[in-house]
Amino acid sequence: MNKMKLEFLNLSENEAFARSVASAFCVQLNPTIEELSEIKTAVSEAVTNSIIHGYESSEGIVTLEGQICGGAVTFIISDSGMGIADVDAAREPLYTGKPDAERSGMGFTIMEAFMDRVDVHSEIGKGTVVTMIRRIGGE
């Protein structure tokens, strides 16, 4: 069992920082390069969502927590931002909350493809918590 917690301001330059920390935290499970790349991408999607959708243009804190238990890693990405009104709609492929911003709407689809499990809890005005689990190695 291992745990870590990182808090950072919602600046887009922190996306690379957060996914690098996530990747470094996983290394103790001896993942393949491919597994690491997939996890980095999934974490980057969740952190980007918090930064650009969670807080819009106001300042806020994004939290990245990591847990290792058995052969699995869990990441919890949370913000105290505006929240998502319809989580099921947001998880649909090609859905974007910012149609003018040239966003692809693939964020949640990528998280689901690259992690074994993705849970999203969101409350309007309170924020969003994304929990993602990935088993390393095995089958």
């Binding site: 991408t41 999607e45 980007t48 040239e102 692809s104």
Partner: peptide
């Protein structure tokens, strides 16, 4: 070395 869905949006655009 790395691209996420932001890059997908960039290519689509």
């Amino acid at each position: 070395s790395f691209m996420d869905s932001s890059g997908i949006g960039m290519i689509m655009g």
